[in-house]
Design a protein around this nucleic acid. Structure first.
Lengths: 195, 195, 195, 195
DNA sequence: CATGAATGAGCCTTCATTCAT
DNA sequence: AATGAATGAAGGCTCATTCAT
């Protein structure tokens, strides 16, 4: 299962690459493997050896954050209040997407470059599915929303923040405003209650 | 006022270009002026003469739809029910974005290539602003949403549909589901009413 | 001999074109017939009808100045002092080239676009030839310089000023300094007088 | 100090590129990187990797000659006769420009593409400055010529030869004739001594 | 005569990916 | 494993000139 452990120097190179990529992502710069190599002081070939495609590198950058989210999803399952659990979960997810530019594209992609990414996304959203089911059973959530809508809706909020184009420091606040609207809309009683 | 009526053949070429672009947009293909020229059976220079940038061409493709939306916005102002007026307006706007791929990027862009586009967007959203104000005064809409949030939110829904990745025929239905949630969330009484 | 006199409007167009070109030349901008047409508010075709090539237009712009120079050449023939006559002639020619950007390329070209230009250049330099011959006979000029060197040498001074790259206002002064050197060098007694 | 010795094959390619460029320069053909690539049998990217701009390639072509000139400048400093030293220096410089078409544009340019070029030009002309100062102190050179005039004047001679348009084999002789005039003009005693 | 739309060769430049060293 | 040179398709844009209207 575990791949051959990396040689010491190879591991160091890998870390350097990811660190450079992290930095580029934070500066909203597209990942170009040539560019990453240059900035990392490595040959392109080395970067390609570690990451076959820009997507693979991006997913690697996103992974720790995905892990955190998945872990939070796990914990949210223990919350006795189904609505709050779901809302917390979605809030965290949106906050992460708005904060970390590596997440949105990875979340929105239907195909992953790395199996590991697929695993993480599955873990994350399987928690989401349970939380949604519970909330729905508790009558806290409108019934016309399916599990498959969670990803689109969270990505949508993040996208709204991008379109809004506010200063970096205001992104989280803006996201919260939009989330408030979304969460309001999710509540069961708001379903098409007539005119 | 009128810039100079185009010569017959020039007009035909221009239409051909726009038609080709329309087709590419519908097939979710990026507009490349060289490519458009080839498909239209015209020289590159001809395309550049009519549309200095891909953005200008895209906005030209989007224009008719923007006009329709703006016209609808005008009519919506006559609706005596402020909430319904706003909801209709947003619904139409989202439907359009989901149906016509030229709209989302034009709507989301902060800078326009053509003055005409700026005018149309201004007309459209000035109606939106009035409708939002009225709805808010009528207490039909949560108070933490500002005029500047309308564009992001409608783009967000359209983006959610894209992320959802459903079949072309289901896009409108999906959009309506998301809209229902959004509109539910917009209603005043759902504002952070505690847990 | 005289070509059909231009129709009134055609003459006006022609003048407009030349005026625009004159302006562009003064701003050290390359003459592009499309560009000239646009600035003159005329169709490209019109410009092409009047001036088949950028060279023809440039020569037309240069013509009045060439005429002045040729006229001065004529007058210089009347000067009883052969050295002064030649030096004045060269000075005027260089001053003109340094002042009027249309001259240098026309002067340096071995082929002309317009017969009229060939005539003017011939008139100008036939005066130069006589002035040089007289000065040489008077022993005022080194003997190793031939008629064919006058154009290169004047162009050279103008080029030196360009390379020097001084402010527009200093060009004439710089040209005079270089001319002083050149004229000094032309004087007979300076010929290789040993080491 | 040394940037990293080039790999064998890379060095060979680089040489091939420079050789092709050298050839084009000798045939008075403008350097176009695509064209150079094709003639060298290499990909465009390869040429761009080695030379980011046509200017960089041209300067590389010119470099050996500039080095020779700079070396000669050094040696000229040892000549006890100030006038002869300066005249030799200028003669060599002009001969080089007239012989090697890569020099004139590099010499005349106020901005260099490569730092190396700036160094070489500085070395060359700092020798020139000393030689000029010495000659002036010795009273061998007119006083109205400054250091900044050396480049323009040498370029001017080369330009005169171009304008003269003689056969390739006569260029050097023509240059010598013009140089004789220039050097005559530089001599102190020829300064505006009245008529 | 005037117009100006159309042409399209031609140049520039970038970048994802491969592969010899 | 690492390197980084080489590749070349791909796309962008300009401009001199022609010719239908």
């Amino acid at each position: 299962m575990t791949p051959t452990p990396l040689r010491r120097d190879a591991a160091r190179n890998r870390e350097r690459i990811v660190a450079v990529a992290r930095d580029l992502v934070d500066r909203r710069t597209a990942l170009q493997l040539n560019d990453v190599a240059r900035r990392a002081g490595l040959g392109v070939g080395t970067v390609y050896r570690h990451f076959a495609t820009p997507g693979a590198l991006l997913e690697t950058v996103a992974a720790p954050c995905l892990e955190d989210l998945a872990a939070h999803g796990e914990r949210a399952l223990a919350d006795p209040d189904p609505r709050r659990a779901l809302e917390d979960f979605l809030t965290r997810t949106v906050e992460a997407q708005v904060t970390d530019a590596s997440l949105a594209p990875v979340a929105a992609a239907s195909e992953d470059a790395l199996p590991r990414t697929t695993e993480l996304k599955a873990a994350l959203w399987s928690a989401g599915r349970v939380l949604l089911d519970r909330a729905r059973e508790a009558g806290s959530v409108r019934t016309d929303l399916a599990f498959g809508d969670l990803v689109p809706l969270t990505c949508a909020i993040a996208h709204a923040v991008d379109v809004h184009g506010c200063a970096p420091d205001d992104r989280i606040d803006t996201a919260h405003r939009y989330l408030a609207t979304l969460l309001g809309g999710l509540r069961a009683d708001t379903t098409p209650s007539a005119g």
